[in-house]
Design a protein around this nucleic acid. Structure first.
Length: 902
DNA sequence: GCTCTGGAATTAACC
DNA sequence: AAGGTTAATTCCAGA
């Protein structure tokens, strides 16, 4: 295992540090990284910027999997660069192995390793003066050991962690969750925590570095740099030898060979194991009939190589910054339901509701309470997380960066800056079944109207530019590379768009060219989506996201427009969320809005539901649950089939069981297309006969989101989604009714676990209209937010009612968080928010262009017309809401027996 | 023969 | 601990 070990070591290091900025070209004796990189006015350290096109090119390696240290979590925010208004990224901390003078190994004297930097605090609100613009790897560090990691002892935490009796988590080894901690402390608001994290990281770096030193110092074979001209970083660099397809890359990386025997610890070679039943070490990779992610390349998956030490497919030095999946993943990092819960947004967070941003750092706190997974109705939530990007990070600074230090992929960027605007002219379909490595390609992502997504850069038409694309997240958090999905380059005679892959911080980036002759537009017909096994990713050190149910992604496009003076303006735009699971084809019905949130207990009023996936035989069931969650009443409403279609259900509100109630009764309803095919529940209230609707509160809280709402929930806005409440239809008596209807609608935030029945939630119990409910005003108008399939959609068949085959509309629960929100109102408006911003309506050939679209729109319009006028709830605080509710209901006598549980 | 797809069987995690 | 569910993965087969 000697050799293997060696390699393993190196790989290990990569796992830990993700990107080893070892300039491939740097041969032994070659210019030191610093020298080579230290071009221009850019600090050498920065020259390694991940986001820089050149760097991309430098690593044409196909990455078997994403970088451990999720980009989103570890990339330090860009810092102010010398030229005022300019920023430079600090992708990761660089570590010079073996000291400045030269590395211990022949790996090119003093290789500089890049590792996630935690110098996050240096940014934002008050950008600290760049320590030294000319930051060199040396001065990068504060002289801390992390910069010059001691070559000593590093037993390879993998072993330690992997085999460690699950104690790895606490071990000083990299296996520790230090990386994770970054995410936890990434919020500058918690400096103490940050420092703590720093310490951990430092320690980890030291270890890793030393480990690295132990490892092969040979230039990584994977480091086949893609030729690119530093002088023209953004120039069009065509595919180069180095830039080969993923296939090659994979082959290269995964080099099946006999394998680097690595105790790929836990690679869950087999199915994902959430339980800690098996320690990484215990998990014999060999047991799996399939190789783990790293074991085989996506493309031509070589025969499942024996479990590699690290795994053959381990990312090249550039690949990731973190650990590989399985390895060294502290047991604790394994996602168990409870852990997931931790990661998930907290239920209590009323913040979203009241529109108040969550204080930074909050996310870092592990929410107490029951595991989310246990929460009924919790489904496909946005990936949680400890990750907390400080708002500082999106402090609205300009998207101007040094050409030599482009922003990391997880760095929020606007889609527009001055006259420049990156726009998705044609949005991708809302559903694209991603393929596993074990499968053949499932083709390129397609657009709704047929064809493929189209991206265009507006405001620039001078020379060819490189358009980068990667798979980003679609949860409520800021946009970042998706840990479980990677872009997959599609080739073939049917693919007209030339592209090549690069790997940036472990994230595959597909690069295409925007040509002036094409009006700087690109037809994205070469991008497929590869699904990485959850088990591989979840076990990855530092990974905080969970794969289970985290099946939505967004296509993220980024372009760096040269501005002269070594500066570039980086703009980015994200597509609408794309559901990547096969399961999504289930076409769960969804209710996005409805015209009535309450009516007399006598029922009979016409309730019009607007949503998707309604079927001719869809049923609408009203239910009421007691404080204990038990079903107390259930009644199927009568649907007026004549006035219903695939996106609209018109029904008569059923009569409530007890017409003598003296106070409003909170009930719920859901649309059912059959067992297990129910929409999330929606809130509804039956009012005592003496009362009619509650005009004031209701009208003010219900209805479609008012159009231009604050761009919250966007990637640039880290405040949590405002309408976190969501629920799923109860499938069984034990199901705890979501009393707060989820906001499916537009970018629904994740479902939050409920702490108790509605009635148990003071202040919210009588909320006229759960903020999450359709009625809750949400920023992004439905029509412009979700990839709603319209009847006449591509598939709609000309609006034939109930025609199925629409692109799968993400179930409410899948709804993307508000990230895709309102159109940017300025250069810094949320980038990814564009999906929404751009709205399907805006996308000419995008959603809503079908024949039915107009109708849909019209319908929606009329539907919402009555609500659009409503007062946006955005500015309302929870307190205010409570007050309103209290006021509204104060007049209701609480009859005995109806006293809501306290 | 290969890619792309849609389906569905298996497997494992959860409840 | 056993059994049912659900989601993730792997397999198959047809176009």
């Amino acid at each position: 295992m000697g050799a293997a070990s060696c390699e393993d070591e190196e790989l290990e290091f990569k796992l830990v540090f993700g990107e080893e900025k070892e300039a491939p070209p740097l041969g032994p004796g070659g210019p030191g990284p610093g020298e080579e990189l230290d071009t221009e006015d850019s600090p050498s350290c920065c020259s390694l910027a991940l986001g820089e096109p050149p760097p991309y090119g430098a690593s044409p390696i196909g990455i078997p999997r994403p970088p451990p240290p999720r980009p989103g979590m570890h990339s330090p925010p860009p810092r102010p660069a010398p030229p005022p208004g300019t920023w430079e990224s600090q992708p990761a901390r660089l570590v010079r192995l073996g000291g400045p003078g030269g590395g211990p190994g022949g790996s090119g004297g003093g290789r500089i390793l890049e590792c996630p930097s935690i110098r996050i605090t240096s940014i934002s609100p008050t950008p600290e003066p760049p320590p030294s613009l000319e930051d060199t790897p040396d001065n990068w560090g504060d002289g801390s050991p992390r910069d010059y990691p001691p070559p000593d002892g590093f037993g390879g935490y993998r072993e330690a962690g992997g085999t460690g009796s699950g104690g790895s988590f606490f071990s000083p080894s990299p296996g520790s969750s230090s990386l994770s901690s970054w995410s936890f402390f990434s919020d500058a608001s918690d400096e103490a925590a940050l420092y703590t994290a720093c310490d951990e990281v430092e320690s980890e770096l030291n270890e890793a570095a030393s480990r690295f030193g132990l490892g092969s110092t040979l230039p990584s074979p994977r480091a086949s740099p893609r030729p690119w001209t530093p002088d023209d970083p953004w120039g069009v660099y065509g595919p180069s030898p180095g830039a080969r397809g993923p296939e090659d890359s994979w082959l290269l990386l995964s080099a099946p060979g006999p394998a680097p025997a690595s105790p790929r610890p836990a690679s869950p070679c087999g199915k994902r194991r959430y339980s800690s039943s098996g320690t990484p070490s215990s998990a014999s990779p060999a047991l799996s009939r399939r190789g783990s992610l790293g074991d085989e390349g996506p493309e031509p998956p070589p025969p499942p190589p024996p479990p590699l030490a690290r795994d053959p497919g381990s990312p090249g030095p550039f690949d990731y910054v973190g650990a590989t999946p399985a390895e060294s993943i502290p047991q604790k990092t394994r996602r168990t339901s409870s852990e997931q819960a931790v990661a998930l947004p907290r239920p209590e967070e009323p913040t979203p509701c009241n529109g108040k941003p969550v204080p930074g750092g909050e996310e870092a706190v592990v929410p107490p309470g029951p595991p989310r997974k246990d929460v009924p109705g919790m489904d496909y939530l946005a990936v949680p997380s400890p990750l907390s990007w400080s708002k500082a990070r999106i402090g609205g600074h300009s998207p101007i960066f040094r050409a030599s230090a482009l922003p990391p992929l997880d760095w929020p960027l606007p889609s527009q800056f001055e006259q420049l605007e990156l726009r998705i002219e044609v949005q991708p379909r809302a559903h694209h079944r991603a393929h596993y490595e074990t499968e053949g390609s499932r083709g390129a992502v397609k657009a709704t109207p047929g064809g493929h997504p189209v991206v265009k850069l507006l405001g620039y038409n001078e020379k060819p530019l490189t358009l980068q694309m990667f798979i980003g997240t679609a949860d409520e958090r800021n946009l970042r590379p998706h840990a479980f999905y990677q872009v997959h380059r599609i080739t073939g005679k049917m693919v007209a768009t030339a592209s090549y892959e690069a790997v940036v911080s472990g994230t595959k980036v597909l690069e295409m060219t925007l040509l002036p002759e094409n009006n700087m537009a690109a037809n994205i017909d070469c991008a497929g989506i590869l699904k990485l096994r959850n088990s591989d990713i979840e076990l990855r050190k530092g990974e905080t996201d969970i794969g289970r149910k985290n099946t939505r992604v967004r296509l993220v496009f980024r372009v760096h427009v040269p501005q002269g003076g070594g500066k570039v303006v980086s703009v980015q735009v994200a597509s609408v969320p794309i559901e990547c699971s096969q399961r999504s084809a289930q076409e769960l019905p969804q209710v996005e809005a409805y015209n009535l949130s309450a009516c007399s207990v006598r029922g009979g009023e016409e309730l019009v539901l607007s949503g998707a996936n309604f079927l001719p035989d869809s049923k609408v069931v009203f239910i009421e649950r007691g404080p204990d969650g038990k079903l107390q009443w259930e009644e199927e409403a009568t649907v007026n089939r004549l006035k219903s279609n695939e996106v609209t259900l018109t029904l008569a509100v059923p009569e409530y069981s007890n017409k003598r109630v003296s106070r409003p009764v909170q009930v719920y309803f859901y649309v059912s297309n059959g067992r297990r095919k129910r929409s999330p529940t929606q809130s509804f209230k039956f009012l005592p006969v003496i009362f009619k609707e509650e005009p004031i509160p209701d009208s003010s809280l219900r209805g479609f989101p008012s159009a231009p709402g604050p761009p919250f929930g966007t990637d640039m806005d880290f405040s949590p989604p405002r309408a976190p409440y969501s629920s799923y239809p109860p499938d069984d008596p034990s199901y705890e009714p979501p009393y707060l209807s989820e906001g499916f609608n537009f970018g629904t935030p994740p479902l939050y676990p409920q702490t108790g029945p509605p009635s148990y939630r003071p202040g919210l119990r009588l909320f006229p209209e759960p903020s999450g409910s359709p009625g809750c005003p949400r920023p992004p108008p439905p029509t412009s937010f979700l990839p709603r399939p319209f009847p006449a959609d591509p598939y709609g068949g000309g609006g034939a009612p109930f025609s199925m085959g629409l692109p799968f509309p993400p179930p409410a629960a899948y709804r993307p968080p508000l990230p895709n929100s309102p159109p940017p109102e300025g250069p810094f408006s949320p980038q990814s928010a564009h999906p929404a911003a751009e709205g399907y309506g805006e996308v000419g050939s995008g959603y809503g262009t079908g024949e039915g679209a107009p109708e849909q729109e019209k319908e929606r319009g009329s539907f919402g017309s009555g609500f659009r006028e409503s007062v946006p709830i955005q500015g309302i605080t929870l307190e205010e809401v409570s007050e309103i509710i209290g006021r509204d209901l104060s007049g209701f006598p609480v009859p005995p027996g109806e006293e809501p549980p306290a």
